[in-house]
């Protein structure tokens, strides 16, 4: 089960990463000694109880948060000028003041790609998720599920080395969520991007990930790694298989203990 290529040439290499917030009552350790290697083209899910610092870790990988100790490296690809990472935020974070298509083309615009070129790319992605009709709409005119689609293809249109997703489907209702999981699987099979995916949902983690990393309650530490050996391409039917249930039960056994500990901590 060792991933030879992951050891040889990891796309993301995080070594002993810690995050410490200074507060009035002293220091709060959000992430402690967390190490992670992600191979090129791998889909890694990070699961953990609320407030375990998984989002903080993702923001550190994205360069949006300072690292207190340790190091994170995202290897550049062969193409120069390609952005190293793009984040899909839980709260969509698509700009209300830009039309859908301008939102999708945002990353390209910031990199100085010409208008015709970037709109062409944006239109291609809008087509792929069935939003071509809504190109000229403003975000307040479309539904939550559509907004999150826009947010996801904004990241894909940017064509980053790695895709960082921070509970992207967390704010959606159960049905929309399933539809988007399926769409995500389909797109990922075609693009094979390197993905780090934060989620609360075990089902989602097992369904999407090649590997599921379990983080402990605060301070967030590496607890366990599960290799998900389910065949690709997967679809929503994968959930009904017996192996899926096995994986889920195995992870839940460890996770439930942590969730309880996290709840006790909060009290």
């Amino acid at each position: 089960m060792t991933r030879a290529n992951a050891v040889a040439m990891p796309k993301i290499l995080a070594r002993n990463v810690s995050k410490i917030y200074p507060t009035i009552d002293g220091e709060t350790v959000a992430v402690k000694d967390f190490s992670l290697e992600v191979a090129d083209g791998e889909f890694v899910c990070i699961v953990g109880p609320s407030g375990c610092g998984k989002s903080t870790f993702l923001r550190m990988v994205a360069g949006l948060d300072d690292i207190s100790a340790g190091s994170i490296r995202v290897s550049p690809g062969d193409e120069p000028g390609k952005p190293s990472n793009s984040v899909v935020f839980q709260e969509y974070a698509i700009f209300p003041w830009k039309t859908v298509i301008d939102n999708v083309a945002f990353g390209l615009e910031m990199r100085g790609v010409s208008r015709t070129k970037r709109l062409e790319v944006a239109r291609y992605w809008l087509d792929r998720v069935g939003l071509a009709k809504f190109a000229g709409y403003y975000p307040h005119q479309i539904s939550g599920g559509m907004k999150q689609r826009v947010s996801i293809i904004r990241a894909l249109a940017n064509d980053p080395e790695v895709l960082l997703m921070d509970e992207p489907l967390g704010a959606l209702d159960a049905q929309t969520r399933v539809v988007l999981q399926e769409e995500l699987l389909r797109i990922w099979e075609e693009t094979r991007k390197t993905v780090v995916y934060i989620t609360h949902s075990l089902d989602e983690a097992v369904l999407l990930g090649d590997r599921v990393i379990l983080m402990s309650a605060q301070p967030g530490q590496h607890l366990a790694t599960f290799n998900i050996d389910l065949p690709r391409p997967r679809s929503i039917e994968t959930i009904n298989g017996p192996r899926f249930a096995e994986y889920r039960a195995m992870i839940w056994e460890k996770l439930s203990h942590e969730v309880r500990r996290a709840m006790e901590q909060q009290q």
Binding site: A62, S86, V87, F106, G107, M110, R111
Partner: peptide
């Protein structure tokens, strides 16, 4: 954060 992450 989105602005920064997308290279503005």
């Amino acid at each position: 954060m989105a602005g920064r992450n997308y290279g503005a």
